[in-house]
Design a protein around this nucleic acid. Structure first.
Length: 246
DNA sequence: CCAGACGTTGTT
DNA sequence: GTCTGG
DNA sequence: CCAGACGTTGTT
DNA sequence: GTCTGG
């Protein structure tokens, strides 16, 4: 899990639920996919949700790195995640996620939606990173050709959306499934209870580690949906309508 | 020491 | 088969 | 996660 | 950047 999720709860409800604004081009989606810019809540910006690209790129990596999940069991020791785990944990708002199941009937995989029975939004445990392009190649021999230019080349601008791109990316932490999801898959996103969210965001790393357990299955449901959700580009409320299980 | 990897999922 | 794009 | 591409030369 | 492998 978690390679696709939903976030269609109206903006106003999300704002009261998470205590941040969701401006910045927020659009509800029934098909949030890797590579898309999606809202996350960070301690660094307590006022607003920030849109980041799903697929974490470590600051030292080349741009092609994109890690959409991080295993809870090892996240603290892995080089790709250790930094972010220590100081850049985030909440990934969602109101459901999809799971593809091969039911062994030769029909390939079938998508299921997993959510709370009342479709209320929740937070998945996430980590984020900021990535900046490598400094432009300076001429070797001695000082730079043009007046010994030190750094400060491209764009010093600290804000987002500057000329030289600063990529902000996130990943979703996974753990063992609960009883409901266990019937579909052997991994599940870490879902935080509302009273755990603050500790995930601002608690010390040791305390945060205790939060990465499977969320109880009570009050959750799973049901098959149309394969229309397979294509990442499609969207619309029909994607979460139940279909026959075959 | 330097070079090279650094991740998950799923599938075999 | 494997990587890229969505 | 799934879907879809996966390549070059030369020409417009 | 930092760890692992040789």
């Amino acid at each position: 899990m978690c390679g696709r999720y939903t976030l269609f709860t109206p903006e106003s409800k999300l704002e009261s639920r998470f205590g941040v604004t969701f401006g910045d081009g927020f659009e509800p989606s029934y098909n949030c996919a890797p590579g898309e810019a999606l809202p996350v809540v960070t301690a660094a910006d307590p006022e607003r949700a920030t849109r980041m690209t799903w697929g974490l790129t470590p600051s030292w990596a080349d741009e092609s790195f994109d890690l959409i999940n991080a295993r809870a069991e090892t996240v603290r020791e892995k080089r790709s995640f250790a930094d972010a785990y220590e100081s850049r944990r985030c909440l990934v708002p969602a109101d459901g996620f999809y799971e593809w199941v091969d039911e062994g009937d030769g029909a390939g995989t079938r998508p299921y939606r997993v959510a709370f029975e009342d479709d209320r939004p929740f937070a998945m445990a996430g980590l984020y990173e900021r990535w900046t392009p490598p400094k432009p190649e300076t001429t070797q021999t001695g000082l730079g050709a043009f007046g010994g230019g030190t750094d400060a080349g491209g764009d010093p601008g600290g804000g987002r959306g500057e000329g030289g791109r600063v990529r902000e990316t996130f990943t979703i932490v996974t753990t063992e499934p609960n009883d409901l999801v266990g019937d579909l898959h052997h991994r599940m996103a870490v879902i935080l209870a509302p009273d755990e969210e603050e500790r995930w965001l601002r608690g010390d790393p040791e305390d945060a580690a205790a939060l990465m357990d499977p969320y109880p299955a009570a009050e959750m449901e799973a049901y098959p949906v149309s394969t229309r959700v397979n294509a990442a580009g499609t969207d619309g409320p029909e994607l979460i309508e139940p279909v026959g299980a075959g």
